[in-house]
Computed example of a mutant assay.
Amino acid sequence: MVSRTDITTFHDPPPPPGESPWVGGYVPAVGVDVVEPDPAWPLAYDAVAALVREALGLRVLLLQHVGSTSVPDLPAKPILDVDLVVADPEDEPRWLPPLEAAGFVLRVREPWWHGHRCLRLEDPAVNLHVFGPESPEPWKHRVFRDWLRADADDRELYARAKRGAAAASNAAGEHTMAYNARKEAVVRDVYGRAFAAAGLTDGG
């Protein structure tokens, strides 16, 4: 069972020595494109959700639209982030082949981080994050999303951080991982208020 402490603690373990999260020689592309919010993103998620459910059926334990494209009025990279919870991410033969047949490509495998896998779909552009039932990450993502949907001030704060991080990363010729690091302090700050509002920490 996922605990309150699990949800409110940030777990960022590095890859074990000699291990890489990237699959098949994939590396993140240089350049970060943060665009104005698109009202079509929720509709695109609905189509992706239908595709995943058709592929996996009852093996889908949880499916949710997360990340900036799930928050109205928030600028974002034009790539949908979707969380999928399956019974066991390590048991890839049970869930990966049907998703590959539906057009998803495995790009990231991080068994040391809550069993995380990330698959990419190109049209529409999607990062499908796969976790198991014991992972706190889908809970984190949902709390963050719901807080940003509700709080205009933090939504604007995060928008400024995203634009600034993208501009700095693009000027330095960096990829998405560096962009994420540039906005991490603001993300953690917003998470603090989101956790409190959800009653997960004192003050909520």
Results as ranks from 00 to 15, higher is better:
residue 114 H to E: 06
residue 203 G to Y: 10
residue 7 I to G: 04
residue 111 P to F: 02
residue 82 V to L: 12
residue 117 R to N: 03
residue 50 A to H: 07
residue 6 D to G: 06
residue 24 G to I: 14
residue 67 G to A: 12
residue 146 D to R: 11
residue 142 R to P: 00
residue 38 D to L: 12
residue 110 E to I: 01
residue 25 G to T: 12
residue 118 C to A: 03
residue 40 A to T: 13
residue 123 D to K: 04
residue 47 A to K: 12
residue 180 N to V: 07
residue 91 D to Q: 14
residue 160 R to E: 09
residue 119 L to I: 08
residue 18 G to S: 11
residue 10 F to I: 10
residue 21 P to M: 05
residue 135 S to C: 10
residue 46 D to Y: 07
residue 101 A to E: 14
residue 190 V to C: 01
residue 146 D to I: 02
residue 78 P to A: 14
residue 63 L to V: 10
residue 98 P to F: 09
residue 101 A to G: 02
residue 199 G to W: 10
residue 132 G to F: 03
residue 78 P to E: 05
residue 1 M to K: 05
residue 59 R to S: 14
residue 200 L to R: 05
residue 153 D to P: 00
residue 101 A to T: 10
residue 194 A to D: 04
residue 116 H to Q: 10
residue 203 G to Q: 11
residue 129 H to A: 05
residue 18 G to M: 11
residue 161 A to N: 01
residue 49 A to E: 12
residue 159 A to R: 04
residue 128 L to F: 08
residue 106 L to R: 06
residue 172 A to S: 12
residue 85 V to M: 06
residue 172 A to Y: 02
residue 143 V to S: 09
residue 118 C to E: 00
residue 75 P to L: 05
residue 67 G to K: 15
residue 187 V to G: 00
residue 72 P to T: 15
residue 204 G to L: 13
residue 109 R to T: 02
residue 181 A to V: 12
residue 129 H to F: 12
residue 80 L to H: 13
residue 36 E to A: 15
residue 79 I to E: 15
residue 125 A to K: 10
